[in-house]
């Protein structure tokens, strides 16, 4: 982990309240799929943890949704500004040797899965992607995943695009039977997937103070041993499916 001054190369709205920002660190660290960065914003005390969506040789992208004052301020950041960023943080998705994999993303849980898809495609793994959004206006990255050579399916809760309903509805409708999943999204979606699948990895979101494993603000319990806990920022945000308890 380094504390970096990152130059903002772009910050544009790509879907409803959803922004894509390109950041160039002074010295590009190795950022693995599923890792996140922690951004300091003027006027806010705590940093904002945001997962990295894709990595290039000298820059990386993040995608975030405006949900509060902090992300609103982030959306106003202009190209050319410099941000104070801790990067990279957290345990990444392992890119295992697999013939085929199912990537399931929900809303702003979709971004970290893009780098996952990219790295699987680099290894010639067959990648099927199911994306869930509230509505068509909130949808992003369908074409980008397709461009990587993934089979892409979309579900929207209001039925304005693709399958009407959840990602699980889309999986049923298209009869997708791949049993290893890589997923990130809202808790309820992750919980449903945790009950449906036994192989793969889930990435979690949490309120954090430090982002580096010290404050114990973002802990979760082991699914079996209630005395055992994990820090989402350190041992996570990516966990093998079934490892984490959903009630805390």
């Amino acid at each position: 982990m380094i504390v970096s001054k990152d130059a903002v190369l772009g910050n544009v709205e790509i879907a409803k309240d959803t922004f894509e920002m390109i950041l160039r660190p002074q010295h590009m660290p190795t950022i693995l799929p599923g890792q996140f960065v922690n951004i300091k914003l003027d006027g806010f005390m705590l940093r904002r943890p945001i997962s990295v969506s894709s990595v290039n040789h000298n820059c990386y992208k993040i995608i975030y949704k405006v949900v509060g004052d902090g992300t609103k301020a982030l959306s106003k950041v202009k190209k050319g500004q410099i941000l104070d960023v801790l990067e990279p943080l957290g345990t990444p998705f392992p890119i295992d040797d697999l013939d085929e994999v199912l990537i399931i993303g929900g809303g702003v849980g979709v971004p970290p899965l893009f780098e996952v898809a990219k790295q699987f495609r680099d290894k010639q793994t067959k990648v099927t992607v199911v994306l869930g959004f509230n509505d068509k206006e909130s949808m992003f990255y369908e074409d980008d995943f397709a461009f990587l050579g993934c089979d892409v399916y979309v579900a929207t809760m209001d039925g304005s695009y693709g399958t009407k309903g959840t990602v699980l509805d889309a999986i049923a409708e298209h009869n997708i039977t791949i049993d290893t999943i890589y997923s990130c999204g809202p808790m309820r979606m992750l919980e449903a997937l945790n009950q449906t699948y036994t192989k793969g990895y889930l990435s979690f979101e949490a309120r954090m103070a430090c982002g580096i494993g010290t404050c114990m603000g973002c802990v979760c319990k082991d699914s079996k041993d209630k005395q055992l806990y994990y820090r989402i920022c350190k041992e996570g945000p990516v966990f093998p499916i079934g490892k984490v308890a959903f009630e805390c």
Binding site: F44, L46, A206, R207, A209, M216, C218, K221, Q227, Y229
Partner: peptide, 12 residues
Amino acid sequence: FGNPTPRIAETP
């Protein structure tokens, strides 16, 4: 183990 989460909230 400590308290349930969320355990953190930002303030001015």
